[in-house]
């Protein structure tokens, strides 16, 4: 399931964005060994301050499993600045209908833990994110994408019926890994090919019901985070409440968790909240 976050709705989804920055830190700072700055377990750079558009993939439990970031090529973007070595001093492409996609990644750790379902595979998550990105950008009037990727991602694109139609500049080492700038169109034919390859039919975007659940989670966790107490104790309580929300299967159960969380946050301190929770659990048992 794909959620698109931009300057208009980012205030509604701080938890999702935070989870995305942590995923980027694990992938780019960890697994891929790119030269990125990771602070406090999060990879955030100067371009994130420019209100880019994020396309984020979630698994069935609501965990962030994939993401990509889009910027206009008419204004500041990575190829013009950070990745300019790929272009060997040549000015980058600049077009109203061309956006740059960067920081495309998938949570291979979580996905290869595997729960056996087709939907939980790396390939499915990658294709879903690609379909979401291509379709959303097309709806914005964007006909082409220039994307900075490594050769591994290039092979993934080719394997999933989504081969770049061209490249700009040359493959250039960026830190430990080579990077390249590939061109993709957002045409329907390409999307259809990827859909057929991955066996994905129907809308990949979160519907109103799913968005409503995500907003409820944001509201609940924000209330818990506002509580006073030792940071670790607050974090533990957030994890606990989040776990309860993920375990909830009906709207009634979700509403119960919401009432519990808001009730706890009204008690003020985390210590008191844990006491109340333990008492409630003891009462239930």
């Amino acid at each position: 399931m794909i959620v698109v976050i931009d300057s208009l709705n980012r205030h509604e989804f701080p938890e999702l964005l935070d989870e995305m920055f942590r995923l980027r830190a694990r992938v780019f700072g960890g697994r891929l060994g790119w030269e990125v700055e990771v602070t406090d377990g999060r990879e955030i750079d100067a371009f994130d301050a420019l209100d880019p558009l994020y396309v984020i993939g979630l698994d069935e439990e609501g965990h962030v499993i994939s993401c990509a970031r889009a910027l206009q090529t008419t204004g500041p973007h990575m190829l013009a600045d950070v990745f300019s070595a790929i272009l060997h001093g040549e000015p980058p492409l600049r077009s109203a209908n061309l956006w740059e996609s960067t920081r495309f990644c998938v949570d291979t750790e979580r996905l290869t833990l595997g729960r056996g379902s087709v939907k939980g595979t790396v390939s499915h998550a990658t294709c879903e994110l690609m379909i979401g990105s291509l379709e959303y950008l097309r709806s914005c009037g964007i006909t082409d994408i220039v994307t900075v990727i490594d050769p591994v991602m290039d092979r993934v694109l080719k394997r999933s019926e989504n081969a770049p139609y061209g490249y700009v500049g040359e493959t250039t080492p960026m830190g430990k890994v080579p990077a390249m700038a590939a061109l993709l169109d957002t045409g329907e034919e390409r999307v259809e090919r990827v859909r057929a390859f991955a066996g994905i039919a129907g809308s990949v975007f979160a519907d109103q019901v799913a968005l409503g659940r995500l907003r409820l989670r944001e509201e609940v966790l924000a209330a818990v985070r506002r509580m006073e107490g030792a940071p670790q104790a607050v974090a533990d309580l957030v994890d606990y409440i989040d776990g309860q929300l993920r375990a909830a299967t009906t709207d009634g159960e979700r509403e119960a968790v919401r009432r519990l969380a808001l009730g706890l946050s009204a008690t003020g301190g985390v210590q008191a909240a844990w006491r109340a929770t333990r008492q409630a659990l003891a009462g239930a048992a």
Partner: peptide
């Protein structure tokens, strides 16, 4: 030809 086209657009 699409690479040609995107360069012309730019």
């Amino acid at each position: 030809h699409r690479t040609v086209e995107v360069h012309l657009k730019s």
